[in-house]
Simulated scan of single mutants.
Amino acid sequence: MKSRLLSLTLAPAIGALAACSPEEPGPVKIIETVTLNETGTGYAPLSENGWTLAWSDEFSGEAIDGDKWGLDVDCWGGGNQERQCYTDSTENASIVDGKLVITARKQEMTGPALPAHMRAAAEDPDATQTKPFTSARLVTRGKAAWKYGWIEVRAKLPQGQGTWPAIWMLPETNAYGTWARSGEIDIMEAVNLGTECAECPGGKENTILGTLHFGDLWPNNSLNSTEVAQPGSLDDFHTYSLIWSEGKMTWLVDGTIFAVKEAGDWSTAATDEPNAPFDQAFHLILNLAIGGGLPEERGLKGVSEEGFPKEFEIDYVRVWQCDTEVASDGACPTEGG
């Protein structure tokens, strides 16, 4: 089935940064929308093609592995006026039947007004904020980060107006400066899944996005984003992947490529190096936001309080890296079979 391609416009992109971490909230500027080219199915990282499993979490233990994941605790709202506080409570993130379950609850909470890395420079580092929802954000920051690789996450996404699940990456160190000079990689994000949508197949919102953020410091930052219809049922698990090599990124859903971006499609104001800022190590983030610029400006608008709690279920996370000595042509191919 041919995927539906949506072009981003400036209006819905205002504040469209659930996955990103600007120093303060603000609009983003679109420089290009990538065209979707269908390229077939069956892409997988095969060992005979040089791909080696470097890191994974199958969530087979009784609790979240603290050697692999940290949990951010703050009520900042991601710089997007999101409506959740992130907690380290098992009510918001836990292992259930071999899966990581991130749960957003309609539950008022007061907590730190800023994330930990911003508090030291704040006028009032002990400031608090109260939000009407709680959720969780897991990060491999300080524990695992990668420069290039094949990142794959199998997950089932929550539905409802105002939901904003994301699988994404931020630089381990801001080598080119703070956001967005050092970049951001959004492997998958989705908003308002399952809500009424006249132009969507089946009449329900089913769009997923793959996005890069880069350029200059906010508010002169830029993005390059592709939106497509999620194949299959929203009630099923799907596999979201990014193949990241020198000067090239490829996005897949269920083994089908839906976007390719190359050096020249991104930049940073910090240097003329063509691969920058995506030539540094990035760590992985899994989170479920409620509300914020992108979901509240789309769909039915705002946040519906119906159907809580909302669950973002992750079956596994796997990261492969390329062994060029095994790869026949010196570069690991993407096609696996």
Rank of each mutant, 00 (worst) to 15 (best):
I31T: 14
E305F: 09
E189G: 00
G299N: 03
K147P: 04
S267Y: 11
P165G: 05
W69Q: 00
T195H: 00
A120V: 05
R318Q: 12
F278W: 05
T41Y: 12
E23S: 10
R119E: 12
H117A: 11
G61F: 06
D236E: 12
E199R: 10
D216T: 12
S94M: 10
D329W: 15
L5I: 04
D124W: 08
M188H: 01
E205A: 13
T52M: 10
E205Q: 14
D65N: 08
N80Y: 05
Q280L: 15
S135E: 07
P231N: 10
K99I: 07
G183F: 07
D72M: 06
R119Y: 13
S89W: 10
G111L: 04
R119Q: 10
L6T: 09
T130V: 00
P112D: 09
Y43L: 01
Q84T: 07
S7W: 13
E199I: 12
D254W: 05
D265T: 08
R4D: 14
S304T: 06
Q129F: 15
Y86R: 03
Q84A: 08
T35F: 15
K204D: 08
G292D: 04
A229C: 15
G50F: 04
T173W: 11
A116W: 08
I187K: 01
G183D: 03
P158W: 04
A175G: 10
E189Q: 02
P115F: 02
T163Q: 09
T173Y: 14
P165R: 08
E199W: 15
K143V: 02
L36G: 01
A327K: 08
E227S: 09
L100P: 00
F278A: 03
E82S: 02
N49E: 14
T250A: 14
L288M: 13
G98H: 07
N275H: 05
E273I: 12
N221P: 08
P115M: 02
I102T: 07
M188T: 03
P295A: 02
K131F: 11
S233C: 07
T207F: 15
E335K: 12
F278V: 03
T103G: 10
D315M: 03
V228C: 01
P309W: 03
K261N: 14
I14H: 10
A289P: 03
I30T: 14
P274W: 01
M118F: 12
F308N: 11
D72P: 01
A127Y: 05
P171Y: 00
A93R: 01
T239Y: 07
E311D: 09
G264I: 11
C197R: 00
D254Q: 04
A121L: 15
P45H: 11
S267A: 15
L114F: 00
A281N: 05
G336L: 00
P112S: 13
R318C: 06
A270G: 03
D323M: 08
E172F: 10
E152A: 11
A104D: 03
F214G: 01
C20Y: 02
E23M: 12
E32M: 15
L209A: 11
G255S: 05
L212T: 05
A166R: 02
Y148I: 11
L138V: 03
R181Y: 04
I243D: 12
E246M: 14
D67V: 09
N174T: 12
D254I: 05
K156V: 08
L242N: 00
K143R: 14
A331W: 13
G232I: 06
G210D: 10
G215W: 01
G232A: 04
W146N: 00
G302L: 08
N206M: 06
V73H: 10
D279Y: 02
T39C: 13
